[in-house]
């Protein structure tokens, strides 16, 4: 309930910021002749994962935004549903405001609320997202939790066009924590990396692109020990099948 209140608060702040009238409003044609607010809903990952140890996961990674060129409000969602335990292994909601800071880069700030099976966490988020030279899509964030622990994640994606409809995408994700948060299985230092390779086909415009692929996940150091202790694995290979969605 508390988390909900926090997120609603963030939402209303962002909405208020969007509603603030811009300067130079006197020309009515600025309203009739320009398109200024936009929205979009997409799921970069919407997939089922089968691990080499017979673990099965349903994974969604998506976002929805509303806003202008100057300010967007974005809701990012990440969830991993574990079939065997009937539980959310990961369940993250981020609510961020996003502003351009360069031709190719946006800064993000907001709040992240984790409510998976087990202890919850609320984080403040400061992030950078954009397009690096040579077409690498990069997203990186600094998180500080309500327990005072800081961590950084880094994601990069590269799309290789086999044809203009068959697209191979390579992804890399990593998480580094600056302090231990044993309760949620986070050790100090490099926590984990995930490498993915997916082959998709744009079936309906860019709205529906089914794919198959594989994902390799690995945990390191103290994090790996924590996982080991709680009976989890430290290294997994997954076969994935899913679709990229965009509306």
């Amino acid at each position: 309930m508390n988390h909900l209140a926090v997120s609603m608060c963030g939402l209303s702040l962002a909405v208020a910021a969007l509603a603030t009238p811009a300067v130079a409003q006197e020309d009515p044609a600025k309203k009739t002749q320009t398109a200024r607010t936009f929205w979009g809903v997409s799921a970069e990952k919407f997939e089922y994962r089968y691990s080499d140890s017979d673990e099965e996961l349903a994974v969604i990674e998506g976002d929805a935004y509303y806003g202008t060129d100057e300010l967007k409000f974005r809701w990012l969602f990440e969830g991993e549903w574990e079939e065997a335990h009937n539980a959310w292994e990961t369940l993250e909601n981020q609510f961020v405001g996003q502003v351009p800071v360069d031709d190719f880069w946006d800064a993000k700030a907001g709040i992240r609320i984790d409510t998976p099976e087990g202890p919850d966490r609320v984080y403040s988020v400061l992030g950078l997202t954009g397009l690096a030279p040579y077409w690498f899509e990069v997203d990186t964030n600094l998180y500080v939790s309500d327990e005072g622990d800081a961590s950084v994640d880094f994601e990069a994606e590269y799309e290789l066009l086999i044809t203009n409809y068959w697209i191979a995408s390579a992804t890399f994700e990593s998480l580094v924590a600056f302090s231990e948060d044993q309760e949620i299985g986070v050790g100090k230092g490099l926590n984990s990396t995930e490498v993915g390779l997916r082959l998709s086909y744009d079936l309906i415009a860019r709205s529906f692109s089914p794919y198959v692929g594989m994902v390799y996940e690995r945990k390191y150091g103290d994090t790996a020990d924590l996982a080991w202790d709680s009976g989890g694995s430290t290294e997994d290979w997954f076969a994935v099948v899913g679709a990229r969605l965009s509306f």
């Binding site: 309203k31 009739t32 002749q33």
Partner: peptide, 9 residues
Amino acid sequence: GVPGISFPG
């Protein structure tokens, strides 16, 4: 015929 410039529409 441009709304906001020539006339209201």
